[in-house]
Design a protein around this nucleic acid. Structure first.
Lengths: 130, 130
DNA sequence: TAAGCGAATGATAATCGTTCTCATTATACT
DNA sequence: AGTATAATGAGAACGATTATCATTCGCTTA
């Protein structure tokens, strides 16, 4: 697992904000929060996220609206996501951990994290499906 | 599982092309293929994909470059995806099927399909990681 | 401590996938 | 056939992300 002894300031700031949140943030939301703390450009936020992803510290998933949502890798990332309204409901159980550990030994690929997402229609939306 | 007796022509055409491919296609690639067969607009391709997703017949996942890749739901969708080069390597084993079936009875949510993706660095890229 | 140099930054323009708009066309129903 | 309704294609609009570039920061070396 790549873990540099110290992170550049902006990367650290981005990671801190993500860790303080209990839910994934978009890059633009992140930018809004960081702007209240310091002078920072949107491009820098994207650059920091890119690097943090490559280091296996941050993960992203695509919102149904197209934008990416970012969260620290430690955070569980298993959802029921409604195709109609786009809302995501977190799941607690993860049956994949052991497979991930097994993969580490069986494939030439360094796994940082995984995502597991179930797609369908949530109860409130079921009635409104055409 | 929602399965209308007959699909509108364009939705059927989109589904046919996706089913003929052995790998997921972007909306733009799909548009290119369809244009060789018939007169169709890009907006219609997106509209058809949207509807097919809501019907649980097509699924999408985000490419590392940001665009969405579409494939029929029947197709297995489990990958090792390299954060560096973006290439995806399909996995055969799926440990989640039974959890999905269990979910159907334990949550108020109609599950159409799931995605499982492992992210990390592939062997060829490991050397080039800074 | 000052000078020099390469990497990082912020502002903004450019890019590109996706969605919206709207005039036109196809479809369904009577 | 006649009319209402939905679907379509073309292209404009949108918005998230990426590229550009002049400036600033951080570090090394004199």
């Amino acid at each position: 697992m790549p873990y540099p002894s110290r992170l550049p300031r902006n990367q650290q700031a981005v990671l801190d904000v993500l860790s303080q949140q209990s839910h994934p943030l978009s890059a633009q939301e992140l930018y809004g929060v960081l702007r209240q703390q310091q002078l920072i450009g949107l491009a820098t936020v994207y650059r920091a996220l890119e690097t943090l992803k490559l280091r296996g510290l941050v993960q992203s998933r695509a919102d149904t609206s197209g934008e990416s949502l970012y969260s620290p890798v430690e955070q569980d990332q298993h959802y029921l996501t409604c195709l109609q309204c786009g809302r995501s409901f977190p799941l607690d159980r993860c049956p994949v951990q052991e497979l991930e550990e097994h993969l580490q030994y069986s494939v030439p690929f360094k796994v940082y994290y995984h995502t597991l997402e179930f797609f369908g229609i949530c109860e409130p939306c079921i009635e409104s499906v055409d």
